[in-house]
Design a binder for these strands. Sequence first.
DNA 1: CTCTATGCAAAAACTTTGCAGGGAT
DNA 2: ATCCCTGCAAAGTTTTTGCATAGAG
Lengths: 133, 133
Amino acid sequence: MEKSVHYADLLKQKGLKSTPQRMAMLRIMETKGHADIDEIYQEIKKDFVSISLATVYKNINTLLDEGIIQEIKVPQKKSKFEIAKYKHSHFVCERCGEVYDVQRPKKLNIELPEGFEPREASVMVVGVCKRCH
Amino acid sequence: MEKSVHYADLLKQKGLKSTPQRMAMLRIMETKGHADIDEIYQEIKKDFVSISLATVYKNINTLLDEGIIQEIKVPQKKSKFEIAKYKHSHFVCERCGEVYDVQRPKKLNIELPEGFEPREASVMVVGVCKRCH
DNA sequence: CTCTATGCAAAAACTTTGCAGGGAT
DNA sequence: ATCCCTGCAAAGTTTTTGCATAGAG
């Protein structure tokens, strides 16, 4: 399946236009896996020299609103964004700051007090990644 | 054990002065359990009418640096701060935004690729709390 | 008495908004 | 042709910094 078509359809489904800038942002997130605002901006400027940071922010927000991407709040670091995909957990390297997807625990044994209704859980593992090891 | 003494000692250990403002901030976090910057600022202004928001930020940062408090990055919400305490997990209510401490899973079955060294993990459960249910 | 912490003001960093022109459908 | 999207500039929000003074040890 060709990715650009894939994203174009996805955007159309949500009633969003597939502008070159938007497509580029999605491609950047797909390629890097996880990127923060500034990484996306620096990267997209290579292709769209005059793109505005405001456009990056606006697109991040519309893509978040439509659930096409997700925000990952990383301890002590800036938020990263990723293409929304099937449930998974994250590993963040405390040396280089890189975020990795990891398969999430099959079962999470957590005791909640009476009356608390869980809907979902997110797990973030902090440690040292392969490259920094 | 009286709390004010407790915190005074803790600050002294770290070479920090126990000023009334700092003590008040610690007391607020202890009482509320989890508070964001603005909650702390609004609360402390009741006792210290002329306190500066800059002082709140500076103290949050020094307390974080010394590991006396911790930041909790909450999905879609502003960060909350809490007194550092023994390992636990968090539950955040998607209705009211309140954060609760919950006991953390005894064992986290998570498969990491070769070469990845975990140091710690944090679990955040999202759902509906007792009061909002 | 010494040196850190506070308060204030200004600066820096980050994010959103309004609007006119451009481009996707 | 319509209406959303972009780029730019300005405004808004959040956080940090510099400096003079106050106050804790």
